[in-house]
Write a protein that binds this DNA or RNA. Structure first.
Lengths: 333, 333
DNA sequence: GTGAAAGCGCTAACAG
DNA sequence: CTGTTAGCGCTTTCAC
């Protein structure tokens, strides 16, 4: 960034108007006579003038920039959400500052603070943990936040999700009706709100409703190899049907089963609870709880635009419909 | 963004120093007496003062923000590059404004212009097309640019790549030595610099060197279903070995082959030229030209930091080593 | 419909 | 080592 070549002042001088008028033209303010507007626009084009967004931000206290907090960049689940967010952001002319928080070099609240210092107008939060420090920083600076694809037990933050309990119950039912009675659930961090208050309770309720005593909850299973290595344990425990939160983990289990010479879905049914492209290109293809990720991102961003403009939003917690997509990893096709 | 609660002025008043001194403390300027520094820091902590990065940006003409241009958000190839970029950006305290250009709502040069208006200090460019308009805008604003995982035929922009010609030649050789003589290459856009000036010439040279007359170049094959649908044509053309630029396309071909009851690698060998996690989790696993994506991103970002600080860089075009990773889609394991 | 003027919050000479 | 003083480029009352 070097000395700006042409500023609003140059345009004003050349067009023989005041900076104020140029500013009005730039911002589409209707209080400008047609001829004046055209004269100014001609100069803008001739000089190739481009407004300095930083100066605009300082003067107007709006940066038309939103922050995106994502746990990991290389996870298609968040990438698909981000795509929905990005499209709507573009539509409303917002830029996106993205921050992943997987890197432990900086603590989460420092990352967020740096975003806040950049004066973002709003934040979309996809991490499954919202520490008090962070929540307070948002409230203190009055920055609107929308959670996308995740929840928080504070009810104060807007969120866009699906009905995780219902979805999981439906998935468990599917396998149960296929004759699988020794069902399990495989999650990463068991303490996230989605897992702790939704998935795991749904699983336990299902067991209770069907008078099944023995529960199989596998936690801290985060990636492909965790999944791959888990299968021997599943086999030992006699599990014959499993819900796996992350699809790449499910693929790990899938490959492990096949390498062991077993059959999917006969020996083990698998349903993944967050399906990306990976779930559909592996063979056998995975039965999935299909979340409308793109739409969830789009709705979240749209809601954020309203929040940033202090517009009315009807309902701060929206749940979008999901689909239980039967593929080859369950019997009942 | 609302009226900022505490500014540098408040800190100055409370600490009984001038704004300049507070500024020095914030920026780690050594010209401050220890006691003064500590007094100021105490006030900063007590008041929870956070500098306004927008104001800093306007005054200093540096935003500590870089722009990231990516063709699509939901492509793991770019996601893995981005991760390398992000880690180094964090290390040097830069924020990242990400812009995908897949959405045709706005033209590419408008997207870039909006980035430039935000006064980014530099740009990492991953799109495989760099229009003149964009190139000129970069030069005019003096914004340094580094291309990551792609090339441009202007030599003026720094780039981080692998040796595509060498890699492809090696891949073709591998298949040739497996007895495959009817080799093909599958690309998306044939007019990108990487394809037009590197991959395709390498392929043609290989054919010439081995006295093979018939060439099979399939273009505009961009995604999974394009790949899936291509196989019937490959079969018709008697192709027995193929390099596919994008791995998800390769998986499309792979599944199509298997659905046709044919065998991989016996009936067809496949090597993908840009491998992400997808290439390794499908079965049979794909033999790949393994690009060091994370490192490429990291090196590109590191180079950009130097360019932004007008530091010396030795060599503006860096090529990183790749690896030909033999898996199950080729015979010669 | 247009202009003058006062900032937005901070940095960076320049003095001292 | 510290303070004074101009800006950075733009928006936004408030007059006229």
């Amino acid at each position: 960034m070097h000395k700006q070549e042409v500023t609003i002042y140059d345009v004003a001088r050349e067009a023989k108007v005041s900076m104020a008028t140029v500013s009005r033209v730039i911002n589409g303010n209707s209080n400008v006579r047609k001829e004046t507007r055209e004269r100014v626009e001609a100069v803008i084009n001739r000089l190739h003038y481009q407004p300095n967004a930083v100066a605009q931000g300082l003067a107007s206290k709006k940066t038309t920039t939103v922050g995106l907090i994502v746990p990991e960049l290389t996870n298609l689940y968040f990438a698909e959400l981000s795509k929905g967010i990005d499209d709507i952001a573009l539509l409303y002319k917002y830029n996106i500052i993205i921050s992943s928080i997987e890197n432990r070099l900086m603590k989460e609240d420092e990352v967020i603070q740096s975003l806040l210092n950049k004066q973002v107008d709003g934040v979309i939060y996809m991490s499954n943990r919202l520490p008090d420090k962070v929540a307070n920083a948002f409230k203190q600076t009055n920055t609107p936040v929308v959670l996308a694809g995740t929840k928080d037990n504070r009810d104060e933050f807007a969120s866009v999700t699906i009905d995780y309990q219902k979805a999981d119950t439906e998935a468990l039912n599917l396998m149960y009706n296929d004759g699988k009675k020794n069902l399990a659930i495989v999650v990463g961090d068991p303490d996230t709100v989605v897992n702790k208050d939704n998935r795991i309770p749904a699983y336990r309720k299902f067991l209770a409703d069907h008078d099944i005593a023995e529960e199989h909850i596998y936690t801290k299973i985060n990636n492909y190899s965790d999944g791959y290595n888990l299968y021997s344990q599943l086999e030992k425990d006699g599990v014959d049907g499993v819900i796996v939160t992350r699809d790449v983990t499910a693929v790990g289990i899938l490959n492990s089963v096949m390498d062991a010479g077993k059959n999917i879905p006969k020996d083990l049914e698998i349903i993944t609870a967050s399906a990306t492209q990976i779930a559909s290109v592996v063979r056998p293809a995975l039965t999935t709880i299909k979340q409308p990720l793109y739409d969830m991102g789009a709705v979240a961003m749209r809601m954020l635009t309203k929040l940033m403009n202090n517009e009315e939003v009807d309902g701060i917690h929206v749940q979008l419909p999901y689909e239980l997509l039967k593929k080859q990893s369950t019997l009942n096709q």
